[in-house]
Design a binder for these strands. Sequence first.
DNA 1: TACAATACTATCCATTTTGTAACTACTATT
DNA 2: AATAGTAGTTACAAAATGGATAGTATTGTA
Lengths: 120, 120
Amino acid sequence: MDSIVHNSVTCKKARLAIRDTLDVIGGKWKMVLLTILMDGKKRFLELSREAEISPRILSKELQEMELNGLVSRTVCNTKPVTVEYALTPYSETLKEVLEAMGRWGQQHRERIIEEIAQPQ
Amino acid sequence: MDSIVHNSVTCKKARLAIRDTLDVIGGKWKMVLLTILMDGKKRFLELSREAEISPRILSKELQEMELNGLVSRTVCNTKPVTVEYALTPYSETLKEVLEAMGRWGQQHRERIIEEIAQPQ
DNA sequence: TACAATACTATCCATTTTGTAACTACTATT
DNA sequence: AATAGTAGTTACAAAATGGATAGTATTGTA
């Protein structure tokens, strides 16, 4: 009886935590952008080109990530103004998540390819 | 020059892998459902109630997850037919991902609460 | 003055996702 | 026959997301 309560409570907490994470980095682009920025700081157009994402969406995603403290935005006074986006220290706490997802996606793809090569 | 190519290639791979993962367990419900099923097998209505998800969506999500080999569906011959959904061995490969997301969501929530308690 | 580069923003529309409500199918019980 | 429980499905509506195109603002160059 005690274990049922315990499981139910911890399970609810786990669900809530996962929802929280999805609220911050869910969606089609945020994790991809974080991955690109792990390479180093990038300018707006660089991000746009590398991720193949339209400026409208990119702008929105970056704003949200900035609000959540995951990226920093720096305006440089260059000939035409350029803006640099970079990861913040806080975004490093997501490394584990990103790496786990990267590893899984890679092994999953390998599994699919094997299945195609030699149908079970 | 070599390192640039290398980074660019590995970065593209990482992005692809993350996209692959999102294709399989992205969206509002799949990770939540997986978390609930980590508690043990559940019937359709149990899942619907616990996740607070409408039957239409639940049905669709479960079908997709079954297709991807993440959950099993077992029809039991009981008085009114019941159907049990359970995690498959393959879904266990996602444990790392789910746990990482759970941990991050929890620490993020704590951070937010602290921020509210004592605004920086 | 005209044009180009950078970083956006605005407008509009298409697609995808999610939700609501009602309904089907099967069986068992009253 | 009427009702209820389980597991869905269907039809429709609302909302979120994504994308294409063009335009703004600033500065520099030809």
